[in-house]
């Protein structure tokens, strides 16, 4: 309808500005839903941490905080490279965008690798909630605090959901990479890169909260 309608602007929009604002707002609204999605788990965590402070304190010490720190580093780096990917896309540098997308993906995959390794050690340590759960063989005080399993239930629920979001993020990055490679983006039109970037940073923020909540429940004693 509008004379300035280019092929990059979907039919329902008047122009590229409207389209860009709409997709950016759409992603933000989606991220709000994500906050509330994780919010349910954060509520459960808060309630039980207040109810069982000692259990959480001791159970948390059986998570490897070095691994957690390394993984936080990895994710923060990936956020930086994602920001650079958007930056490169804004400047219309196709090759550079592709490189940064790949680096971001590699970092994301590394995060999941470390996470997988941690899960594996939890499995061999019998710390996965269920009939095989057993903290006694690692710590003689566990018999006095029978509710430690709750901490690990929350640990797996929260990090599992986060890892699932990372997988979706990697899927989005793959899609972005293909699109970039095919030259679909330009200085004028790079909104998908920006919007996927928002998602990636959000998943990073979730981890920024999960890390201290799960790994750093008072390590001073």
């Amino acid at each position: 309808m509008s004379e300035t309608h280019s092929s990059l602007v979907a039919h329902q929009f008047d122009d590229g500005v409207q389209q860009k604002q709409a997709t950016t707002l759409g992603m933000w609204v989606f991220l709000i839903t994500e906050i509330m999605f994780f919010g349910g788990l954060i509520l459960a965590y808060t309630v039980y941490r207040i109810k069982y402070p000692e259990e959480f304190h001791h159970a948390s010490k059986h998570l490897d905080y070095v691994m957690g720190t390394v993984n936080t580093c990895i994710l923060l780096c990936s956020s930086l490279t994602m920001a650079f990917a958007v930056h490169a896309a804004q400047e219309g540098k196709r090759k550079l965008t592709m490189i940064f997308i790949v680096v971001t993906m590699v970092l994301g995959a590394a995060f999941l690798g470390v996470k997988g390794w941690e899960y594996y050690t939890k499995y061999t340590d019998h710390l996965i909630p269920g009939p095989n759960y057993d903290l006694n063989h690692l710590w003689e005080g566990a018999g006095l605090l029978p509710k430690t399993q709750l901490f690990f239930s929350l640990y797996f629920a929260m990090t599992g959901l986060h890892a699932f979001h990372m997988l979706i993020g990697l899927g989005l990055m793959t899609w972005l990479f293909v699109k970039t490679k095919r030259g679909r983006f330009s200085k004028e039109y790079f909104n998908p890169v920006e919007v996927c970037g928002l998602y990636w940073h959000f998943v990073d923020i979730v981890w920024i909260f999960l890390f201290p909540l799960l790994y750093l429940v008072d390590r001073s004693h």
Binding site: M36, F37, G40, L41, A44, S153, F156, A157
Partner: peptide, 25 residues
């Protein structure tokens, strides 16, 4: 819809986990 529905979603997920895996929540 946007602010409330995700909470029921995660709640149902927890019910399923509790029922299927007895996570204790």
């Amino acid at each position: 819809m946007v602010l409330g529905t995700p909470v029921i979603a995660v709640t149902i997920l927890l019910v399923a986990l509790e029922r299927g895996l007895h996570i204790g929540i």
